[in-house]
């Protein structure tokens, strides 16, 4: 296998906060991301799924160096990610770009979109002004827009077109990694399919790798080569999307998959979890999921399960997962 594009090892991001009502508050630790590891090969897609507050977006920001790590290490093309703001980090940022959920918020309303697409070239001092314009025109075309869109303002474009502009801006530096944080959630159903198809085409053309974050499991399956399910700052299951969604192994993944409303439910009974996810300040001891887990046993309350391989190449962090090699 070729050298991984991105390696994340034991990523931890904790926040020191004050917890409780004002008078009786005490210092506490919010565990936003609590030991996340994965690798991403060039040209592949890792889908990151989970509910709000599980640490998906924090993981994305850690990967780009936009947030400092409490612990752990990120290597991009084999090189340890240098401190954010340093010269070397700025250079490496050309390789990795981010696409956010809300394209209107990611664009400047007062600047014509063409200039915004060219801006990364200006920042990195690439090319003469005329060349920059040519490159911007070319990239607009590859994301399915036309030359006349160059002088438009964000409010003149539709939601799908704006997301194409955001993509064009991220792609103009020819990055190798695109971190997409809920890139289609703000779009209408008929437009989501357009953007997802575009992402797949761009990947095939340019050999891009995606870290694709979404709560929409169906879309994640559609785009991903591998999927990681997060719960309270940790990966609880990771593996091939077809296998993972067809026969989820972790009880949380099972609940998540069964919660997706579908037109034709094939046999499986819906599993409805009790309660809300716990506050990341008060993560339960042992397995963080045990309070909501339908099959938890005494061991789950005391011992945190590690991510262990299954026979089919998947990894799962559950004491009770059948077929998991006991570590």
């Amino acid at each position: 296998m070729s050298e991984p594009l991105l390696q994340a090892e034991g990523l931890v991001r904790h926040y020191r906060i004050r917890h409780g009502s004002r008078l009786f508050s005490h210092p506490a630790t919010l565990r936003a991301v609590d030991g996340v590891s994965f690798t991403l090969q060039p040209g592949r897609t890792l889908g990151l799924v989970g509910e709000s507050g599980c640490g998906k977006t924090t993981t994305a920001r850690l990967v780009l160096g936009l947030l400092p790590l409490t612990e752990g290490e990120i290597r991009l093309q084999g090189e340890t990610l240098p401190q954010a703001g340093s010269m070397r980090w700025r250079e490496l940022r050309r390789v990795m770009q981010m696409v956010y959920q809300d394209p209107l918020a990611a664009l400047d309303r007062r600047i014509a979109v063409g200039r915004q697409v060219m801006e990364p070239l200006v920042i990195h001092a690439i090319g003469a002004p005329a060349e920059r314009r040519d490159r911007a025109m070319a990239i607009l075309q590859s994301v399915g827009l036309q030359a006349h869109h160059f002088d438009r303002y964000p409010h003149e474009l539709s939601g799908g077109q704006r997301q194409r502009i955001v993509l064009a801006r991220a792609l103009i530096l020819s990055p190798r990694l695109l971190v997409c944080d809920e890139p289609i959630s703000a779009l209408d159903v008929s437009i989501q399919a357009q953007v997802v198809n575009l992402l797949l085409d761009l990947q095939a053309e340019m050999g891009l790798a995606y870290l694709f974050i979404s709560h929409d499991l169906r879309m994640v399956r559609q785009v991903s080569h591998e999927v990681a399910v997060m719960y309270l700052g940790r990966i609880v299951e990771r593996g091939d999307p077809d296998r993972l969604f067809a026969a989820p192994s972790h009880p949380y993944t099972q609940a998540l998959v069964s919660a997706i409303p579908v037109a034709h439910r094939s046999g499986r009974q819906r599993l409805i979890l009790k309660g809300d996810p716990p506050n990341p300040v008060d993560v339960p001891t042992g397995c963080a999921f045990h309070e909501r887990c339908p099959i938890a046993v005494a061991r789950c309350r005391t011992e945190t399960p590690a991510l262990r391989p299954l026979a089919d190449g998947r990894h799962v962090a559950c004491h009770l997962a059948p077929g998991a090699a006991d570590a």
Binding site: S52, A255, P261, P277
Partner: peptide, 10 residues
Amino acid sequence: DATIQAQILE
């Protein structure tokens, strides 16, 4: 969230 959505619809 998905698991809460399932609760409310139920």
